[in-house]
Amino acid sequence: MDYWMAFLIGGMICGIAQLVMDIGKFSQIHVMSGLVIAGVILGSIGAYDSLIDIAGAGALLPISGFGYLLIKGILSYKMENGWMSIGSGIFQLAGLELSFTIVLSFFIALICKPKG
């Protein structure tokens, strides 16, 4: 059942993004930025936590999960060190995701030989 919920919730997030691009005529970068901002807003008010409890990786893997990880890093670092040092906590949780993406992109570029 967990796999179905992850599939349905992740697919719903991606489906909403696709509808916004198709119906609203927004570009991909606008929709991607909107999803990150939505993840930050929902994560800061605690609504994304319940979505992750239901869907697990289905809610963390879309780009809105990146915004959620950014705000969670900021909020956890603020609790430990106060507001003056939240800039160093931004990539506390999202750093692993960024590192994995960069390394994976490098190896895919070696295998696929991009034309650019």
Rank of each mutant, 00 (worst) to 15 (best):
F66W: 13
S88P: 08
E80Y: 04
S76I: 11
Y77T: 13
S99K: 08
G116L: 12
G46M: 00
F26W: 13
E80S: 11
A47C: 08
S85T: 15
I41T: 08
D49V: 10
I41V: 15
V20F: 05
A17W: 01
K113I: 09
I23V: 11
A38H: 02
L69Q: 12
G56R: 08
P114V: 09
A55P: 01
G43S: 01
V31Q: 02
F66Y: 12
P114A: 06
L93D: 02
F106M: 11
T101P: 00
L98K: 00
I54V: 12
S50I: 13
S105E: 07
L98C: 13
I90V: 15
G24T: 03
H30D: 05
Q28F: 11
K115V: 13
K115R: 14
I52H: 08
V40N: 08
S44L: 06
F107R: 03
L61K: 00
K25M: 10
L61G: 03
G39W: 04
G10T: 06
Y48F: 13
I16P: 00
I41L: 11
G15R: 01
S64A: 15
M12S: 13
I74E: 05
A17I: 05
E80P: 05
A94Q: 05
G34Q: 03
I111V: 14
I41Y: 01
D53Q: 10
I45C: 14
I41D: 00
A17Y: 04
D2T: 12
G95Y: 11
I29P: 05
M12Y: 07
W83L: 12
N81E: 14
A38E: 04
Y3A: 15
I45H: 04
I54P: 07
E97P: 05
G46S: 03
S44I: 05
V103M: 12
G87D: 01
I41M: 09
I54R: 14
L8S: 09
K78Q: 14
P114I: 10
Q92H: 14
C112F: 15
V20S: 04
Y48E: 05
K115Y: 08
S50D: 11
I102E: 01
I29N: 07
V103P: 01
G58N: 02
H30Y: 14
Q28W: 13
Q18I: 12
L98A: 12
L60A: 06
S50Q: 12
G10Q: 06
L69I: 10
L19F: 09
Y3F: 12
S44Y: 09
I90Y: 08
D53K: 14
G58E: 02
V36T: 05
A6E: 08
I74N: 03
D53V: 07
G34T: 02
T101E: 09
D22P: 00
M84V: 11
I16F: 07
C14K: 02
C14V: 11
G67W: 03
L61C: 10
Q28D: 07
M5V: 14
M32C: 12
Q18E: 07
M84C: 09
I54T: 13
G87L: 10
I41P: 06
F26L: 15
M32F: 11
S99H: 08
S88I: 15
M5E: 05
I86N: 01
I71K: 04
T101W: 10
L19G: 12
L93Q: 12
C112Y: 13
A94V: 11
I86W: 03
A38S: 09
I45N: 13
Y68V: 03
I41F: 09
S105V: 05
G24L: 04
I9N: 02
I86A: 04
